[in-house]
């Protein structure tokens, strides 16, 4: 593998959960991220899609060092993330690696005005003088479509609509011009036209400064427009990975296929069939060793029941799939 900007090697994150059986405490583990390996190049946009609760946010938090992996190695620009020390080195890392948080209703401090929130990274990193900060904040606010910026700067989150809050969260992450950004559903509440504006901003930064992104989204159409490559996650495992157009046009894994067939069609005359998938989401608490998708898979056979979770294998150059029946 080329030495890219970000690499994950066998990264696993377990969360302990306690269940009480009478007074005996039994320790179980949520396998939020399970033996994940991938790489993101400089200037690349890498899409991560998957079921709610499959571990996308957890992966992002591991990368920005909000969580420590249980096993495995994460490097950003060749630096081992788990080994970064507190103080100066950590601050320098924070300067370079940012995250846009998923839920803008919870990730903005209700006592901070928009200005306070967006200027916070500048202040903490000691960038720009106080006087310059105002102009910098105004600039980024208009870039995310909060125009005119003076009318938004001193509002509190509760005075903003959902999409406006989301743009404040984007502005906060982008204001210090990071090198790598984990974008966790950054545009889920934005309409197409404003979303296009925000996407333009992200793409422009990528072109000018070589910023790389891990773009987490539920929206496959957005992934298609934004990303070069993408990975599909299911219960902590990557089940398919490859160039976006390739994955969307020739999905191989049964889960990816279900996902694509569930995308709503913007045409009221079309009646879509329900996606080919059984049952409901299983919680990833100490999952059985077989394929994670087994209980819901329409294609499963004895080979799937008898073996452990399949490894990722190349079906075409660059297109990896973890499924025993990939070639059927």
């Amino acid at each position: 593998m080329t030495e890219g900007r970000l690499t994950l090697e066998g990264v696993t994150k377990l969360f302990p959960v306690r269940k009480r059986v009478f007074t005996l405490k039994v320790r179980n583990f949520v396998h939020a991220v399970d033996n994940v390996s991938m790489g993101v190049e400089r200037g690349e946009m890498f899409g991560l899609v998957g079921e709610s609760g499959c571990g996308k946010t957890t992966t992002g938090k591991l990368i920005v060092k909000l969580l420590e992996p249980t096993r495995g190695k994460i490097t950003v620009d060749g630096v081992d993330v788990t080994r970064i020390r507190r103080g100066k080195p950590l601050r320098a890392f924070r300067r370079k690696v940012q995250m846009i948080f998923q839920d803008p209703y919870e990730s903005l401090n209700p006592r901070f005005t928009v200005y306070d929130t967006v200027a916070e990274p500048l202040g903490l990193q000691g960038l720009r003088s106080l006087a310059e900060r105002e102009a910098t904040v105004a600039e980024i606010l208009s870039a995310v479509g909060l125009t005119p910026p003076e009318t938004f700067m001193f509002r509190f989150p509760h005075e903003l609509s959902g999409g406006q809050r989301q743009r404040v969260a984007i502005a906060r992450a982008m204001v210090i011009r990071p090198q790598f950004v984990v974008a966790d559903e950054p545009t889920s509440m934005l309409d197409v036209s404003i979303r296009a504006g925000v996407m333009d901003l992200l793409v422009a930064l990528r072109r000018e400064l070589g910023v790389s992104y891990l773009y987490v989204t539920h929206d496959l159409a957005v992934a298609r427009y934004m990303c070069d490559r993408m990975a599909v996650m299911y219960l902590g495992k990557i089940v398919e990975q490859g160039p976006v157009e390739e994955v969307l046009r020739n999905p191989v894994h049964p889960y990816t296929r279900a996902l694509i067939s569930a995308v709503p069609v913007p045409d009221p005359t079309v009646r879509r069939d329900p996606p080919d998938i059984r049952g409901d989401v299983a919680a990833p608490i100490d999952p059985p060793p077989q394929c994670r998708f087994l209980s819901r898979c329409p294609k499963s056979g004895t080979v799937c029941e008898r073996n452990n979770h399949p490894d990722l294998e190349e079906v075409l150059p660059g297109h990896l799939v973890a499924c025993y029946r990939a070639r059927d």
Binding site: F101, Q102, S107, L108, E120, R172
Partner: peptide, 14 residues
């Protein structure tokens, strides 16, 4: 436990 605390950490807050 509010996400804005995590956001402040990522912003570089000690």
């Amino acid at each position: 436990v509010k996400p804005y605390i995590e956001a402040a950490k990522v912003a570089g807050g000690s």
